[in-house]
Design a protein around this nucleic acid. Structure first.
Lengths: 210, 210
DNA sequence: GTTTGACTTGACCAAACGGTCAATTAGCCG
DNA sequence: CGGCTAATTGACCGTTTGGTCAAGTCAAAC
């Protein structure tokens, strides 16, 4: 058993969940404290404000979940096109799972939060910008490698990566808005056309969790 | 001079601006009343709640601005591919103008609001869903017409329209998050590749407002 | 065994929140 | 003019908000 999760960690993870499920504005310090079973004084011992907790929570989510997941999906051991297929499987499966476990499709927490706080919470917006650009960097690097290996002929990898990433985030957000995971299912065709390759992600694997 | 704008109309338009600039959660009834120069009692004479105003404001924006703009962009007099080019010009120019006039790139109000309130404000979310699907319908109809005219050979217009729309909304939201209008500039290539056609929107026309 | 410093607690605060209401005014129709 | 309704006003309500603070706990370092 790991050391009993400290109040600080509980606050971070509760904040991530709460923002993801609702929104930054709809989450209050009191509600976070209650869900995390932490008293208000302790909250302000660890974090100087609500927005400071949000920034730390994004960092926590990125370092402990998103980055490791991406490092696995974009494993250098796999051919570039296979990585893209795994990325699409990842987004689709996560939407399905999210609906089953939380009762709603929630989309991408970084993107949602970024859109909400772009004006008005500059430190939060800066953190989101940084994370999203790093995310997009995985795509760009893979396009470059595809070019180098001769699998792809992308003339402007940076711009292409931005378009692909916009499609992913856009689809994911549509899935959240309509609460429909199928909205992220059908863009592998379009993804393939943008990079000029045929992709065949396995989008049936809803049951392979058994 | 039109009849002096009624309090109701002032509330609607102030609400649209405020939500667009900030977010639903960051906008208070008091601040709306102050900006619109309307007293609180009048607010609740016209609208039964803050969220009811937001729903009405979305409708107002759609009927009086977005729908007319789209009807012009997607004019039946133009060939389908030309309509797509105008759509891309529209999004790019609007980002540029927005930055110049409001000091920030604000993206799509429907999409931003939808992502924020998908969970928690069901009536708002339903209105956003409806508007976004109507918007996407313009794309789908144009794909169908392109097929019929022989300009395009899209096998699944509904899904393709969804992908294109996700790319547009995704790019626009990225532009908001990074406060950078150039993020919506470079997807005409990708757009064209998805529909299998070459598009050449005029993305230089920042100055043609003179 | 005392000192230290990180952590916890619960009471407290002013301001802001969404919303209500009785009373008043303005505009229109007969 | 009187009468009716829609619109307007500003005071008011209880709750929740983000944030503060003095007082206390506790384990480890000295």
């Amino acid at each position: 058993m790991p050391p009993p999760s400290s109040a600080r960690t509980r606050l971070l993870e509760t904040m991530v969940d709460a923002i993801w499920e609702r929104s930054y504005g709809a989450v209050s310090v009191d509600s976070i404290c209650e869900r995390a079973d932490v008293r208000k004084g302790s909250f302000y011992h660890f974090f100087k404000s609500k927005s400071a907790l949000a920034v730390a929570a994004l960092d926590h989510l990125w370092e402990n979940h998103s980055r490791p997941a991406l490092d696995e999906i974009f494993s250098p051991a796999l051919p570039p096109l296979k990585r893209f297929e795994r990325l699409m499987e990842f987004w689709y499966l996560r939407s399905i799972e999210c609906l089953r476990e939380k009762g709603r499709v929630l989309g991408c927490p970084y993107f949602n939060l970024g859109a909400e706080t772009a004006s008005g919470e500059p430190e939060l917006a800066a953190k989101v910008s940084e994370i999203l650009d790093t995310y997009q960097g995985y795509l760009e690097a893979t396009l470059h490698e595809g070019n180098a290996r001769g699998d792809l002929t992308i003339s402007n990898p940076a711009e292409t990566a931005a378009c692909l990433f916009s499609m992913i985030e856009g689809s994911s957000t549509q899935a959240r808005i309509h609460n429909d995971p199928e909205r992220v299912r059908h863009f592998s065709d379009a993804f393939g056309r943008v990079i000029g390759a045929e992709l065949h992600p396995d989008l049936s694997g809803v049951l392979d969790k058994a």
